[in-house]
């Protein structure tokens, strides 16, 4: 072994060691946080939380609204991400910036903006003529969707940018229209990205708090979702209750995301 080879091996080990240390430190922080939550909560508080009718309603509402928000987010993010990735058009940069606003804005501001939007003339007309949104279940979904969709759009754009556009060109010479080339070839190649965008949007929607609190309120058995349950319990001084609801939130997220990733992705994906 020459001195140069030896130096290179040491350098490689240092690089890998440093990377592993950084990764390990972040994982340790998250594990410590979860452990603190679990250790601070008594089993009795957990049981009491899981048996509470209000919390069960909030959990069910959280699951339903975040799933709807994630599905609608994907429905919007797939064509939007595709257009942003594949085409040049006037105003593209502005649109790109616009789609980042829900990510950049403080969540509370998103809620305030939605609330004000439904106080304008078109917003009032919509609520008077179509259906009520503010402080109702649709408000939860719209608040979750507004933020979650921005993350889904970003993910889908990166996904489509990573797929060689020549695949579609070749598909078009094989007899596909632009649309069928997209559905037969591109969307199929984008499947891991669609799953990533969907799970990201769902997780984001499930944990959404600020906009939901402002725009939908926190009425028990009506518009209370798990993140707002944590807030209510905390405000009542029920720290154990708040932590128990948080643990329930984590458990739901881990089970659903784990199952989605196991079923939807090749080994080692995402």
């Amino acid at each position: 072994m020459t001195a140069r080879t030896g130096t290179r091996r040491v350098s490689q080990r240092l690089f890998l060691g440093a990377s592993a240390a950084v990764m390990g430190a972040y994982a340790a922080l998250l594990l410590a946080m979860l452990a603190a939550m679990v250790l601070y909560t008594s089993p009795a508080a957990l049981v009491q939380t899981f048996q509470s009718r209000e919390i069960r309603h909030a959990a069910a509402l959280s699951l339903v609204t975040s799933t709807i928000a994630a599905i609608v987010s994907l429905w919007v993010a797939v064509p939007t991400g595709y257009l942003l990735a594949r085409f040049r058009f006037p105003g593209k940069r502005l649109l790109d910036l616009l789609f980042d606003i829900p990510i950049l804005l403080p969540p509370l501001v998103v809620g305030i903006a939605l609330l004000i939007m439904f106080r304008t003339i078109p917003g009032r007309w919509f609520e008077g003529s179509v259906f009520l949104v503010t402080y109702e279940t649709p408000a939860i979904i719209l608040a979750q969707f507004t933020v979650a969709c921005a993350f889904a759009v970003r993910t889908m754009r990166v996904t489509f940018e990573g797929i060689d556009p020549r695949m579609e060109d070749v598909a078009r010479t094989l007899g596909c229209s632009r649309g069928s080339a997209f559905f037969h070839v591109t969307l199929r190649e984008a499947r891991p990205g669609v799953i990533a965008a969907g799970t990201l949007a769902w997780a984001r929607a499930l944990g959404e708090f600020g906009p939901v609190l402002v725009f939908a309120g926190t009425t028990r058995m009506k518009t209370e979702v798990l993140p707002t349950s944590v807030f209510l319990e905390w405000n009542l001084g029920e720290i154990e209750g708040a932590l128990a609801v948080s643990i329930l939130l984590v458990l739901i997220a881990v089970v659903v995301l784990g199952a989605t990733r196991m079923l939807g992705l090749p080994r080692g994906g995402l």
């Binding site: 695949m167 070749v170 598909a171 010479t173 007899g175 229209s177 199929r188 190649e189």
Partner: peptide
């Protein structure tokens, strides 16, 4: 449109569709 020209195209690297089996690719047209 390329789909209507009746021209079969073989690009330099083949540009096979990674997520499809060979049978699916051959049957697609």
């Amino acid at each position: 449109d390329p789909a209507d020209r009746g021209i079969g195209y073989v690009p330099q690297d083949g540009a096979l569709f990674p997520a499809m089996t060979v049978r699916e690719q051959v049957e697609l047209p």
